[in-house]
Design a protein around this nucleic acid. Structure first.
Lengths: 351, 351
DNA sequence: CAGTTTGGCTAATAATTATTAAATGCCAAG
DNA sequence: CTTGGCATTTAATAATTATTAGCCAAACTG
């Protein structure tokens, strides 16, 4: 990581001495002269200059007026996520982030996912002269990876994940969302509410599941583990699969009359499974999702959902990353945005 | 656009003379020294240095070895498009683009849409030291805007749009897609096929509509304008609206037994409208889309669609932008990727 | 009014970098 | 072994940039 550290400034004269060549040759090489210069020597000089972070005298770009400076904020996706999976949730976050950054004169630099960002790749991305002034993480990343990123760029904000004491974060109010949903269903007369979980193993799932359990307790309802399913991806197909796993138990007298799903996509998949099995939504079973995006209103039936608007998460992340100082003694902020209930057509009175 | 031109190199001594100050002061300012310097003078010096494209001697970054250089490709969206509209189509393009760029050591810089990119903003984004080495346009932009972009960065590729003679482009084979769909429906016995159009006014709609008309003719089928609708957005809601506009005509003996829609989202909306009206898809009416994304397989019913895979468009765009030279005499390439038919559950035998 | 302080800038000189004619090393041919 | 040619590098000097003590004018204070 030599290129990341910025020690005392080094001169061409020093470079030349290190390499056993003349300063004149160093100057020629760093200005791109190839003619009459041995290719190996050329490469050796460039490599050494870059590895020692050589910068010429004359101007400190990082001290130029703000409005003249290229400014970018990098976006990093958690492992297993890419720009088109999980449909539109993180796309909405990205839109909110981008809009808020653009208003402040920043561009959004898409860096890829945790899986892609090996040390060589990071070195290249954060090459001398880069304009990256903060990082926004979509979802939860491994602790070691986060440490690595912070060494390079200490101004980090996580969205929909919490790395307590390690970086800033922005989340929706999960307990509020689950509580609101449970109350909505209780008001409709539901006394047995099942759970369809996805992204199991991520903190986000844990948080939502615990909030579901707490909301059941607060409403005086039973938390029956026989009607909870836990899957890995949290996509539509798993919503369908989770529902299909439970449907054989439907003849039981205590089968749930409603299900809450980890996210909107699982709700969509669960609804599809129910309809395909000849059941009525919400007539026979109600389904609701523990997050919200505009897709909820576009589906058929419209899906009842509670959560924070994804765009607002992105906007809040932009504000936070741009006020972050990256100092060692900086206080970390967790911003918890309020959740709201959207009542669609997927929930109705209990049978 | 003075910052874009790169004339003869200018020295601090020349800057000082222009401004009527000493070279010493210029050096201090450009290295960020504020103490003992008047704020107006500080700004005046920086502004002049930047406007003349001052760069210190010592190193020509643009001549550094390729692998050591920060390299980015900028993504620009057509007017009215943002990262979360039109669901996943351009997200899949972006994913394909990003993956192919990352393999070659490039990062993807999200620049926003045509509406956002005013001259001041462009100047900032393309500030001295930027690493942008090409631009990819998603969708069709205005001609004047394209000219403006090319002045800044001549290596431009348009995706799903063709600016003939102005830049490179990557498109799916629209005639092939429409032909395939019409043939598929003809084989199922359909003799009357309607059209639901979106993004009317964009070249993309025109191309698809014309290809639809040509395919009807080639199949010896009638192109009946009474059963064609033309709307502006091309989203789900307009798919629904277009279908609902035509449904009152359903009692006619020559009402179409199938519809082709401009894109997948309109198909989804049209199917929703039919189901909501008590009709059967594909029993009563078949619906198919003139583009393809994996969403076609996730819907209920799965939607029959033909088109090029969006990710492949992105990958082809990456290859093209990285081989572009930006020279004034460069030949422009239009790359037309083959379309494929995905048969879902939304098409079946004609009634 | 005179002396002191402060803010802003510069002349002078040192350090860094650029340029070019000349030097050096290597290899092949005689 | 010597010589010539070519490829590569450098010594010397010019140009550019950095640093700092000093300069000057305006404002303040007694």
């Amino acid at each position: 990581m030599a290129v990341m550290a910025r020690p005392a400034r080094i001169s061409q004269t020093k470079l030349a001495k290190d390499l056993g060549v003349s300063q004149a040759l160093v100057s020629l090489v760093l200005n791109g002269r190839r003619e009459g210069i041995n290719a190996d020597t050329y490469k050796r000089i460039w490599d050494h200059a870059i590895s020692l972070g050589y910068q010429p005298k004359g101007m400190r770009m990082e001290r130029s007026p703000r409005e003249a400076r290229m400014r970018q904020v990098g976006v990093v996706l958690r492992s297993g996520l890419n720009i088109h999976t999980q449909g539109s949730y993180f796309n909405h976050v990205l839109h909110g982030l981008h809009s808020a950054l653009a208003e402040r004169g920043y561009a959004t630099l898409f860096l890829g996912s945790e899986d892609d960002l090996k040390p060589n790749r990071l070195r290249q991305l954060f090459h001398t002269g880069h304009g990256i002034q903060g990082l926004v993480l979509f979802g939860e990343v491994r602790g070691a990876f986060l440490q690595q990123l912070k060494r390079i760029e200490p101004r980090v904000v996580a969205v929909s994940a919490r790395h307590t004491g390690r970086c800033h974060s922005v989340l929706g109010n999960e307990p509020q969302a689950l509580e609101t949903l449970v109350q909505h269903l209780a008001k409709l007369g539901h006394t047995r509410i099942g759970w369809l979980g996805g992204n199991v193993g991520l903190g986000r799932h844990e948080a939502r599941y615990q909030a579901y359990q707490a909301a059941l307790q607060a409403a005086g309802l039973t938390d029956d583990k026989r009607y909870a399913v836990f899957l890995k991806q949290g996509d539509r197909a798993e919503g369908t699969e989770a529902m299909l796993q439970l449907l054989p138990l439907r003849t039981r007298k205590d089968f749930p009359t409603a299900f809450l799903t980890y996210n909107l996509h699982m709700s969509i998949g669960a609804v599809q499974a129910l309809l395909r099995s000849g059941l009525n939504v919400p007539g026979d079973v109600s389904v609701a999702a523990a997050d919200y995006s505009p897709l909820a209103q576009q589906e058929q039936p419209r899906i009842t959902a509670a959560g924070c608007e994804a765009e607002k998460l992105g906007q809040a992340a932009a504000r936070l990353v741009l006020t972050a100082t990256g100092e060692a003694d900086e206080s970390f902020h967790d911003v918890i945005l309020p959740s709201q209930l959207y009542v669609g057509e997927s929930t109705g009175p209990a049978r």
